[in-house]
Simulated assay, not measured.
Amino acid sequence: MFRIKGRVPRKVLALGLPMAWGATAITYKLTCPLAHEGGLGARVVTSAVFFAVGTALIVHVRQALLRELRHVREVAGAAQSALLRPLPSRIDGLNVAAAQLSADRSACVGGDLYEVIATEHGVRAVMGDVRGHGIAAMGTVAAVLGSFREAVHDEPDLGRVLHRLDRALARHLRERARDEHPSSGLEPDSPVAEEFVTVLLLQIGRDGEITALNCGHPWPYLLSGTTVEPLARADPLPPLGPFPLPTELTPLRCGPLLPGDSLVLYTDGVEDARDARGQFFSLPAALIGAVRHDPITPQTILRTLFTTLLRHTRGRPADDIALLVLRNDRTPVQCTPLGARGTARPAATNPQPTNHL
């Protein structure tokens, strides 16, 4: 009730000020003798009065629209933050850094998604890209991320996690199609045929072993020392949405993520970014430059990539961009013979990461 009463004066002011200016102009025209004279001076004064009234109305409307736009941006930003919630800087021995950049500076809502969760089956991560952006894309992101956050704890097999995501997406698209076409009263066979989501699922076990399932998404890069190479080169499955998944899904074994190694997950907006001459952004070259920094942390890698990318595009990327960096900072356990003296020494040490770029 308090909120309703608090908003009444603002609405009254928004309507009352234009009405007051309009009443001033009408009163001047009807009651002022100068407004009825035909001389040049009278016409100049009359024109000035109506010009002032019109200018005041335009300024008032502009300010009202700017206030409304700021409110909409705040709501969109809050919704986006609730979906892509900030990740902790450390998850089960992995240092983590992630960030998202919308191609439209006036929009806070994009179609990229990511999440990292520690489970009893290992650390599981998802990176995805919904076709399009805006409110419709945000609903799809919510459906996929909500299903992922539940399935990673329930399903021991990574293939079953992907099947859960596929069913959640199909259910969301059917419900959206019914809402968009309620008059048909029929269950749509192909609700949104052009809608799809690229998804990359990763699982990093306690021993560092990486398994992956890829549906149309770019493979991440593995950073080991100064070496930069794709995690895998296998052909991915089709994106979720247009085509059914195979009944049996066998995750791809991608080798270990050794202590000190990093994985860089990204959406295709990174490699599709172009400069003024139309040249594509070279992500491997940027990663080679990033690993030369000392110390190498997910935060420094992320900061270097965004700086290089924005310089390449002159601050105007053509597509939404999301980056996720995972670094294995687990201390390897060295077994010593029974009765041997001394303790195991960690292979590498790293400074504590920061929580911002």
Rank of each mutant, 00 (worst) to 15 (best):
Q299F: 06
V270H: 06
V264S: 13
A14E: 12
I204T: 05
V75P: 06
H163R: 13
D275K: 02
G111S: 13
T267S: 14
I210T: 01
D319I: 10
L326Q: 03
Q299L: 08
T27S: 14
H153Q: 06
E74G: 11
P236S: 09
G255E: 02
L94D: 01
T24S: 04
R314A: 04
I135K: 12
A78L: 15
P242F: 05
A42Y: 11
P242V: 14
E248Q: 10
I321M: 07
L287W: 03
R178A: 15
A118E: 10
K5W: 10
D154Y: 04
F50K: 01
V264H: 07
S47T: 06
C32F: 11
T349A: 13
G315M: 02
M138V: 00
R316M: 02
A125Q: 01
C215M: 10
L202Y: 02
A82F: 12
S81H: 14
H293S: 08
F196N: 05
T55H: 07
D166S: 15
D275V: 01
E115W: 03
S183T: 00
T227R: 11
E187Y: 03
F148W: 04
V199I: 10
L245R: 00
T140Q: 15
A348P: 15
L65Y: 04
Q279E: 08
T267G: 09
W219F: 01
L65R: 07
P86Q: 00
E175F: 08
Y221A: 11
I301W: 02
T300N: 14
V333M: 05
V116F: 04
H356K: 05
R90F: 13
H71M: 13
Q334L: 07
G260V: 05
A82Q: 12
L101W: 04
F196A: 14
L66K: 05
S106G: 11
A177C: 09
A125I: 08
D207N: 08
H60L: 12
L305Q: 14
A98D: 07
P242K: 11
M138T: 05
L249F: 03
A78S: 13
D329Y: 08
M138H: 12
I26Q: 03
C254L: 02
I26T: 09
G134M: 12
T300P: 00
G278C: 11
C335N: 03
M19C: 14
L69T: 09
E209T: 10
R316F: 03
G134C: 11
P18S: 13
E74R: 14
A97V: 08
T313G: 01
A285P: 06
L326E: 04
R330M: 07
L165D: 07
L287V: 15
R327N: 10
L65T: 04
N355E: 11
G278H: 08
D189N: 10
T27A: 15
A318M: 08
G205H: 01
A142Q: 12
V116D: 09
T46L: 09
V192L: 12
H71G: 13
Q299I: 07
L326A: 04
